[in-house]
């Protein structure tokens, strides 16, 4: 076996092992901690699969923002005694799982080892698409409707989580000094990193979603450190949350009214349009994810 395939096998085993640990640990804390580790291992797997964009996103979202959300759930409630599923259910579940896995393993052996139609199509059309980096071109031009709707999913998830908060936001508690100190260092670093990912995204891996996750991280840190602006669920915060979707729809409607067709970007200004939409989207995603975090935090802090 070559060193490369040893690495592949070890990596595959690691992913499976961490996934098993994450679902098997009976305590919440253990499960969440193992899930954070899964995010790290997955980021490595994505890197190994030639997908640096996804490695970035996994590091930022999968183990970053989602990790912070899950961890915050743990600090909110003391661990609860876990009820267990009945023995019959476990046996049936395991059997069904084994059968499903065997069937799927047979199925995926039939996957043809040849590329799909799309990489060639992307390579052919990427000039004038507004971004030299293929993944960004797909997200912001070829399949821009998906990206718009995905931003909308975030907007409405934030609205839904926000609707669960039925109490006004409480004044922040006193913050421990180490947290404030850490936040002072971390905040500018996160914003800088996010901006870099945003600007880099048109020509190399990176883009609105990774940058947005960094901005969300910055806002979460600010919120945790007691900054009032980050705790707000007011009109301005909600306006920023929806700004990305509205900017995207405005672009779509604008191109339609100009007679080019919905979301059709003219190669002459496609680059500018892509960067503008990405910038608004990144800020919007950042605020939106942070709003989900704040809503979660407030859903717990109901005054007694």
């Amino acid at each position: 076996m070559s060193p490369a395939s040893v690495l592949d096998v070890v990596l595959a085993a690691a992913v499976l092992a961490v996934a098993l640990v994450a679902v098997l640990l009976p305590s919440r804390r253990g499960a969440v901690s193992a899930f954070l580790v899964l995010g790290v291992v997955l980021a490595v797997l994505w890197a190994r699969l030639d997908a640096p964009d996804i490695a970035l996103a996994e590091a930022a979202l999968g183990s970053g923002v989602a990790g912070a959300l899950l961890m915050d759930t743990l600090t909110a409630d003391p661990a609860r005694p876990g009820r267990r599923a009945g023995r019959t259910a476990v046996v049936v579940g395991l059997l069904a799982g084994a059968v499903a896995l065997a069937a799927l393993t047979v199925v995926v052996r039939a996957v043809p080892d040849e590329p799909s139609l799309l990489p060639a199509a992307v390579a052919e059309e990427i000039h004038g698409a507004g971004a030299d980096h293929a993944v960004t071109a797909v997200l912001l031009n070829f399949r821009s409707l998906d990206t718009l709707l995905e931003a909308a999913v975030l907007v409405f998830a934030a609205a839904g989580a926000g609707a669960l908060v039925r109490t006004p936001v409480r004044a922040p508690d006193p913050v421990p000094a180490p947290v404030t100190a850490l936040a002072r260092v971390l905040l500018p670093a996160l914003v800088l990193l996010g901006t870099w990912l945003l600007l880099a995204g048109t020509s190399r891996p990176g883009g609105a979603f990774q940058a947005g996750a960094m901005f969300a991280g910055a806002l979460v840190v600010a919120f945790v450190a007691g900054a009032r602006f980050a705790a707000s669920q007011g009109t301005a915060a909600r306006a920023w949350t929806v700004a990305g979707v509205l900017a995207f729809v405005a672009l779509a409607a604008g191109t339609a009214m100009l007679g080019q067709g919905w979301l059709v970007l003219d190669p002459r200004w496609a680059g500018a349009a892509v960067l503008t939409v990405e910038t608004v989207l990144a800020v919007s995603i950042g605020v939106g994810l942070a709003q989900v975090f704040v809503a979660n935090s407030e859903a717990r802090r109901v005054p007694s």
Binding site: L118, V122, E125, F142, G261
Partner: peptide, 11 residues
């Protein structure tokens, strides 16, 4: 065809 791209590339 959204964004002016026909399948397989577009939606």
């Amino acid at each position: 065809a959204l964004a002016g791209w026909e399948p397989p590339l577009g939606i």
